[in-house]
Amino acid sequence: MERRPGRPREERVTGAVLSAVLDLVAEQGLGAVTMDAVAARAGVSKPAIYRRWPGKHDLLIAAAETRIGTLSVPDLGDFRAELRAVLDARLQAYRMPGTVQLLAGLIAASQEGGEAQGAYRRYVTRIMGETRKVLERGIARGDVRAGVDVRAAATLVAAPMIFRLVIEQELPDEPFAAEVTDMIARAVGAPA
């Protein structure tokens, strides 16, 4: 049998594995995610998983990235509108089943040190990239104060939603996102 070009079988395995992780987390929590359980749920072999993700933390981060990954917010000409777009996109992801368990597990795993901690930091850097870009665009346009610490401001954007979801164990909603948008815009906005 002749093979067709491309790697559709490989893509199917990747998708099946990541879906299996998300399903297991949503149904049974992070503790249910073992390589055996993921392989059985995805219908793939453990070696197929290990070829893509050398460890459980890599697998969890890859699954998280399918749920809470990088964003692309177009230049809307207004910092507040772009900030709200970031928060609305995150709000949608946070509402999906298993997201709170996944985030809580990643936060806990990041404290283990070693490679897990480094992988988690790289993931956070990637997912915070668009927020930093939105802030930098706002500075360039003049609707965000010049000299604002972009990293600190990006943390300020992410922290309220994560805290509400993971620590307070309450699902953030649109009014909360609107209030956070308003508070951050006032905190970092350029004077009128």
Rank of each mutant, 00 (worst) to 15 (best):
V148K: 04
V144C: 02
G129Q: 11
G113V: 14
R126G: 09
G129L: 04
A119H: 07
G138W: 05
Q117H: 07
Y120I: 03
A152C: 05
V144M: 03
M128K: 13
Q111R: 14
G147K: 01
R126F: 09
R122F: 15
V150Y: 02
V148M: 03
G142T: 02
R121W: 15
D149M: 10
K133T: 15
E130G: 14
G142I: 08
M128T: 09
V150R: 03
G147E: 03
G147T: 05
D143H: 10
A152N: 06
R126M: 09
I127M: 10
E115R: 07
G113E: 10
E136P: 13
G147M: 12
R137H: 04
G129M: 08
A116Q: 08
A153N: 04
V150L: 08
E112R: 06
Q117R: 11
V144I: 07
G142Y: 13
A146G: 06
I139C: 03
Y123D: 06
V144E: 08
A119D: 01
R122W: 10
A116W: 13
V150T: 12
V150Q: 11
E112D: 13
L135M: 02
A153C: 09
R145V: 04
V124N: 02
K133M: 04
V134T: 02
R141A: 08
V134H: 05
V148N: 05
G118A: 13
Q111I: 05
V148T: 14
Y120E: 13
V124L: 15
M128N: 13
M128G: 13
G142R: 01
A154D: 00
Q111W: 13
E115G: 00
A153V: 06
Q117Y: 00
G129I: 04
Q111N: 09
